[in-house]
Design a protein around this nucleic acid. Sequence first.
DNA 1: ATGATTTTTGAATGAGGTTCATAATTGCTC
DNA 2: GAGCAATTATGAACCTCATTCAAAAATCAT
Lengths: 240, 240
Amino acid sequence: MAEREAFFLDHAWAMIQNEGVLNLQMAKLAHRCEYSVGTLYQHFTSKEDLLVALATRSVGQRLSLYQRAAAWQAPTRFRILAVVLADILFAQQSPEYFQLAQYVSTHTIWMAASHERRELALEASQPLGDLVASIVQDARHSGDMQDSQLNDRELCSGLWAMCEGMHSLVSAAGLLEAHSVPRPYQLLIIQAHALLNGLNWQPLMDLQDAGQQDRLLERIMAELFDEFPLSACPAGSSPV
Amino acid sequence: MAEREAFFLDHAWAMIQNEGVLNLQMAKLAHRCEYSVGTLYQHFTSKEDLLVALATRSVGQRLSLYQRAAAWQAPTRFRILAVVLADILFAQQSPEYFQLAQYVSTHTIWMAASHERRELALEASQPLGDLVASIVQDARHSGDMQDSQLNDRELCSGLWAMCEGMHSLVSAAGLLEAHSVPRPYQLLIIQAHALLNGLNWQPLMDLQDAGQQDRLLERIMAELFDEFPLSACPAGSSPV
DNA sequence: ATGATTTTTGAATGAGGTTCATAATTGCTC
DNA sequence: GAGCAATTATGAACCTCATTCAAAAATCAT
């Protein structure tokens, strides 16, 4: 049963990658899977429900990238930045996923999914939060972070929002260009450094020293994400 | 002609506020405006096109709040924070608008609108960017800000992304609660302070001193946004 | 083998976005 | 102001799907 659900989702994902979210049709999907429409609807209460399920499933892939960052033997500040980089790389590698995730987390779509499905989605996102929180905890223990006002989750909420927000801005084609903001993901890295500096997360990064920032990025790419093309790295020189 | 377009948009907005974005029907809208469906389609190439037009129009209301912040006789750092607060207040005052804006800036919807409509939307958003950029310029002149790596727009991109991102996270019901992040807008203020500190935007704010932050917020509320209920202010004590 | 229960099916339903042939109106000329 | 051309408005018809549900098929229990 769970197997068939996965089967449906596999094919739905393939269809979305070919034809976009808007063109996914329940009847086509059922036909492609050689099941009837009714059977499809036994698994998903609605199309939106299926989309949320799909987005939920992809969290796993994202997590595996994040985990490299969390498990890295490096100062906590580097590790948290590596998470941001993982986020960026994944967004560039699977733009369809981000498009879907964004569409799904829209109030309009989110609320159209079943309550159970939403709960499952929230549960699935927990490991991502846990992972980031664990880095914060390490940072507190090692003395890299001294803040006492915010708990582990709250501390990262700004960084989280910033990443999410930049993805949103990027996906509205033309918006950033219209506002003279090219290379959004390079900027995201710089702004993330600024935020982490502001939170007093040691070791601080000199924002005026682009070379130092690039070297760190390149190191993370080499040590954690070496299978990604260098062009994916939002460094100062490359036009990402 | 432009008058009739505005007429359509007025009624569309009213209908969305009553019944939500998903329940807006082109035929109902036309009927309510006492025009035929065909006439409606002379103004908007599709439903998505209309939604983008609607979102575009609402930028004006948002702008008027931002302008108070920009025109305020106060240090630039206070003014930029006032912009963030204006954003939050507007989001709380017009949740329908933000829901719409978010829905519309989804790749899926955005790309379904006509090219011309998208251009208009981008143009309409310029004043918001200009306004923020002008504050940055003042900050550079007065010496509050010394960064030389980023231009005026780029400098604020992180703050912009952070605000957008937090709105996104808030609108996915249950997501923040699931991650132990209550009172998102209070957090947004704190994180904005952290980011501004990191950018070295003077005068720096002591992140550990919640009282000082609250006093600033209350001052902005009193001097700029006194018609808003105090409960709208995301201060430390109130449970927003 | 037979009846009961569960699962599957896909044609039918219905909702609603979009189109386009027709009708109405406006503008122009003599 | 009559006649004609050009423009604009109309809304029924069309078409695309998501969703449902009565009937058929498959499975299980005795």
